[in-house]
């Protein structure tokens, strides 16, 4: 008779019973929140507000995607917000000097920044928590230096239309771009050897090494992929605000981790996935937008958001099988 902790079959797409029961809660929250907010303010479900929610969701979804790959390995990237800031500032500066279409250079820039994190973590062997906490200050500082401390305006150009239009008149283009990259990330994690290695590292890094997985390189790539997502998030946030401040992405860090965990990707790694981040993202966007629209004071909004994050973890964290909680 197995007496140890019950291991769930994971890493397969098959949901266990507990997963399904979590899903019920999450979907219920997704449906109930709009009902509550609409009864308090009928504007909540107006086309205008829906559009703005989807635009908010597009950036958060990318930051959630960015954080997922490191978390699947049992690592964490705390610099995602700072990378978004730096990429937004860089995109605005690139646009000023080379024209608007140069904003896309921040995608490879984001990739390199992410790889930089990954290389420090895996080749120099330092804990990702501390490395990315440190680099978040470094990247934030660079963004501050580059911007001179002031918002950097986005020069207008031909791309404006591509970001302000909507697909079928419903889905704002930023959301479409975000979803495309998010889907690519899901495929990468689920259907390529590198993606499977990321899960394997999260399950047992030493076993992955014995199997011949190039652990250090795969780890670097996972952080790099996160950086790439942050790069696009930086572009989207720049187009939505038309000016980049050096702290523009910082506020996304905590909600992104909350959305990942809410979706059922535990910080211990090896389980869950990018697909699951969507539902957490949507709940958080519904909540933040709703609190705004019913006119909750900003201080109260913060308190509610914090409590909701803890409640979400309470629902999704499997406390029965976690022998030790740290």
């Amino acid at each position: 008779m197995p007496t140890g902790p019950a291991f769930k079959p994971m890493g397969t797409l098959k949901a266990s019973r507990r997963d399904r029961y979590q899903m019920v809660f999450l979907v219920a929250a997704l449906v109930i929140l709009p009902i509550i907010f609409t009864t308090m303010n009928a504007q909540y479900l107006s086309p205008g507000n829906l559009d703005s929610m989807m635009r908010q969701a597009s950036v958060l979804l990318l930051v959630v995607a960015a954080g997922t790959a490191p978390i699947l390995m049992g690592s964490i990237d705390l610099s995602v917000g700072a990378i978004v800031s730096l990429c937004a500032v860089a995109a605005a500066l690139f646009a000023q000097s080379m024209g608007q279409s140069a904003v896309f250079w921040v995608l490879p820039l984001g990739l390199l920044i992410g790889l930089f994190n990954g290389v420090i973590v895996s080749y120099i062997k330092l804990p990702s928590f501390l490395v990315t906490l440190g680099t978040s200050f470094v990247f934030g500082g660079i963004a501050l230096l580059a911007s001179g401390g002031f918002p950097v305006q986005l020069v207008s150009g031909s791309l404006n239309a591509a970001f302000h239009q909507s697909l079928f008149g419903i889905f704002p283009m930023p959301l479409v771009y975000a979803v495309i990259l998010w889907l690519l990330l899901i495929v990468w994690l689920r259907r390529t050897a590198t993606g499977r290695f990321i899960y394997a590292i999260g399950g047992n890094e030493r076993a992955a090494k014995v199997c011949g997985v190039n652990v250090r390189w795969v780890k670097s790539l996972a952080f790099g992929a996160g950086g790439l997502c942050c790069g696009l998030a930086g572009v989207l946030v720049l187009f939505s605000t038309t000016a980049a401040t050096p702290d523009i992405g910082n506020s996304f860090l905590l909600p992104s981790i909350a959305a990942i965990v809410m979706g059922g990707t535990p910080l211990s790694g090896g389980q869950g996935g990018a697909a699951r981040g969507l539902i957490g993202t949507l709940i958080l966007v519904e909540l933040t937008n709703g609190m705004l629209i019913i006119g909750l004071p900003p201080a109260a909004q913060q308190i509610v958001q914090g409590i909701v994050v803890i409640l979400a973890v309470l629902l999704t964290f499997d406390r029965r099988t976690a022998a030790v909680v740290k």
Partner: peptide, 26 residues
């Protein structure tokens, strides 16, 4: 448990991991 298997993952994942990593079975 420490170096051999990822206990959390399925039998299938553990078996295919070896072939993917060692023999390039993408």
């Amino acid at each position: 448990a420490g170096e051999g298997l990822s206990l959390l993952h399925s039998v299938q994942d553990n078996l295919s991991l070896g072939a993917m990593a060692a023999e390039g079975r993408q």
